[in-house]
Write a protein that binds this DNA or RNA. Structure first.
Lengths: 163, 163
DNA sequence: TATTGTTATACTCTATAACTATA
DNA sequence: TATAGTTATAGAGTATAACAATA
């Protein structure tokens, strides 16, 4: 996420909202990536681990769809994660074409730690805000997310709305 | 930006704020990248163009520092942008070791269009919000950005706060 | 001696296309 | 014939290290 450069210094509220949002999100992303690198993992691989934690053991095909990435790409990511001991690759019971990817104990532990670090970051950033302001903030986020879905619908692009 | 997967479904306000923020920012990033690809450019190259638009003609050394990237990396990005006609590479007047990178007319035009598309997106997303809610939203963003800078100070990391 | 940018090398993420094994 | 995953190939972004030209 390299969008800090979009800080345009404009004073129009909508533009300031967008700039602030991108800037804050860039800083959070940096923080999250620091955590990832401390564990010797890349964002793409962590994404796969996260998905695996949410969906349970999956075929590479399923992972490719969930991650919106080619099957070939998943092969590489799983290769790396098998090497680092975060997942196992086993024959799929019931379909001998497919392989089943499963979190190891270390993989599960990482996902749990990531969740905790995520919550911790949220608390550090938003934990001190008065409840009513935080609720109003979340409301704007939610409404804007919906508006975005609407805009994408108009434009024809539907991707990215789910999950 | 592949952080949609951090949507944890938690109902705690701080976590919901962080999730919503990352999700919205991911959608905006997708939109911005669509614009970039329509122009046959990548995020890294656009970042360089943007920097060049903000700082004016620069040496590759300056660009490397501004983009927080190695000089070698800048060589590659500039190579591509010279090839696509967005920048020129000329001998630096006064330091024969250095080269000066400058936006072409096409490069400037792109930066202007990017700015406009940026503003347009902001208006589509936030333009309909009542002024007071938008101001409150921006206030939370600003305070959180400051809090983040403070946290980074504690942790020792200072990067990313500027610009 | 220090700095600017390059060549050399390498790793990761990403994609398409062709191919194998299985359904 | 269609699907799951692989090998082959390619391109972009990123990094370090060694080196040439200049300061």
């Amino acid at each position: 996420m390299k969008y800090l450069h979009y800080m345009s210094g404009s004073t129009m509220p909508p533009t300031r909202a967008l700039d602030g949002l991108l800037a804050l999100s860039a800083l959070m992303t940096t923080d999250i990536q620091r955590f990832e690198r401390e564990h010797g993992l890349t964002t793409a691989r962590v994404h796969l681990l996260w998905q695996l934690g949410a969906a349970g053991p999956s075929t590479q095909r399923d992972l490719a769809e969930a991650l919106r990435v080619t099957p070939r790409n998943v092969t590489g990511l799983v290769d790396g994660l098998v090497g680092s001991g975060h997942v196992t690759r086993e024959p799929h019971p019931g379909d001998r074409r497919a392989t089943q990817v499963t979190l190891t104990a270390a993989g599960s532990r990482f996902v749990t730690e990531l969740q905790r670090s995520h919550q911790d970051l949220a608390d550090r950033l938003f934990g001190d805000l008065p409840e009513d302001r935080l609720v109003a903030f979340v409301a704007v986020l939610d409404e804007t997310l919906e508006r975005f879905a609407g805009l994408m619908g108009e434009t024809g692009e539907q991707e990215g709305t789910a999950s």
